[in-house]
């Protein structure tokens, strides 16, 4: 099966820095692919390559089946791009810049008018459509920037940290719009973000990148499941350390338990399977007749997955930078 975006063995170096280091991913058609990773992981570099702005050092990339190096012009007809840091021409009004970009994309007459109206409507740009861009606030510019990427109804949309600087309402609106584009128009979306709740909400699949390499990939649910790290918290009603200690002793033998500890009468158990641990816990307290006031199960969030997968990596990359400085 060919994907909307196919990346194979992608490498991009800046001097001695390997910003992208052997990346291979496939983004399917009409899929929202969330690309997450710590600062300097190589997200923007990847996105700039995929959107024909930056040449890869090695590796191949096809977008909609077209090789980006062989025929970038055709790729540009199919994509819409909102970059992480992009200026806009302050001399124009929002409406003018949208029409300008529509024309650059080859729209004329009615289709141009429709494209501009649609882009204005879906990013809530109405309120400042005829204002000079230099007078807009940061969040308004961000919204306009994304509206520009949508004006020609691209089949594939690249968004680099699209919601940075947006107020919560605008963020929601954009999320809804992205979901709608995928659902109603079959748009493929490749987006990077630092907000894991955003990736969790929006993305069909997520790729976690660190040090230019793909660390994990899958649906948000799969990634969380793969972490196998549920946490069960039990509060002893007596708040008595002895009771808590006893629970710790009794759970340690259970096969689902990874580790158990207590403090201030609250026992916290890291578990491979929270459901088993919960059931086991209820048995223990009943048979040992220990009174408990609260028991809760917390599933891992994407934050847990992210931290787990990228923590060792960021330590490694710091080491690498030190080497460079020494050289």
């Amino acid at each position: 099966m060919t994907g909307a975006i196919q990346v194979e063995g992608l490498v991009r170096t800046y001097g001695n820095t390997r910003a992208v280091d052997g990346l291979s991913i496939v983004v399917r058609e009409s899929e929202v692919y969330g690309f997450i990773g710590p600062n300097g992981a190589g997200k923007t570099t990847t996105l700039r390559i995929l959107s024909t702005l930056l040449a890869p050092t090695s590796g191949t990339v096809t977008v909609a089946g077209i090789d980006i190096e062989r025929d970038p012009h055709s790729v540009r007809r199919l994509i819409g791009v909102a970059l992480q840091e992009s200026g806009l021409d302050g001399m124009q009004t929002s409406e003018e810049i949208l029409a300008f970009h529509g024309r650059l994309q080859g729209l004329r007459g009615k289709s141009l008018k429709r494209g501009v109206e649609r882009a204005i409507a879906c990013l809530g740009v109405e309120g400042f459509a005829s204002e000079r861009i230099s007078t807009l606030s940061g969040g308004m510019k961000r919204r306009l920037d994304i509206a520009i990427a949508l004006v020609h109804s691209p089949a594939i949309l690249f968004l680099d940290e699209p919601t940075v600087g947006m107020d919560p309402t605008s963020r929601r609106t954009l999320w809804e719009e992205i979901s709608r584009l995928r659902r109603d128009e079959g748009t493929t979306v490749f987006l990077t973000t630092q907000y894991l709740d955003e990736a969790d909400q929006l993305a069909d699949r997520i790729g976690i990148i660190a040090g230019g390499q793909l660390k994990a990939e899958g649906s948000p649910a799969d990634l969380k499941k793969a972490l196998q790290r549920d946490v069960v918290n039990v509060t002893v009603s007596s708040r008595d350390d002895e009771d808590a200690e006893q629970i710790v002793k009794l759970t340690e033998n259970n096969e689902a338990t990874i580790s158990a500890a207590h403090s201030n009468g609250v026992v916290s158990i890291q578990s491979l399977n929270g459901d088993i641990t919960m059931a086991h816990m209820l048995e223990i307290v009943a048979s040992a007749s220990i009174g408990i006031s609260d028991i809760s199960l917390r599933r891992p969030t994407l934050d847990d997955v992210f931290i787990e997968l990228t923590s060792e990596m960021s330590a490694a990359s710091t080491g690498r930078e030190d080497n460079e400085n020494g050289a």
Binding site: T52, L53, S74, R76, I79, L83, S86, G87, L88
Partner: peptide
């Protein structure tokens, strides 16, 4: 110069112009 400084030049370059 302005377009290059603000990064707007990139935005022009991702269009098929």
């Amino acid at each position: 110069v302005g377009d290059i400084a603000t990064g707007y030049f990139d935005k022009l370059c991702v269009t098929p112009v």
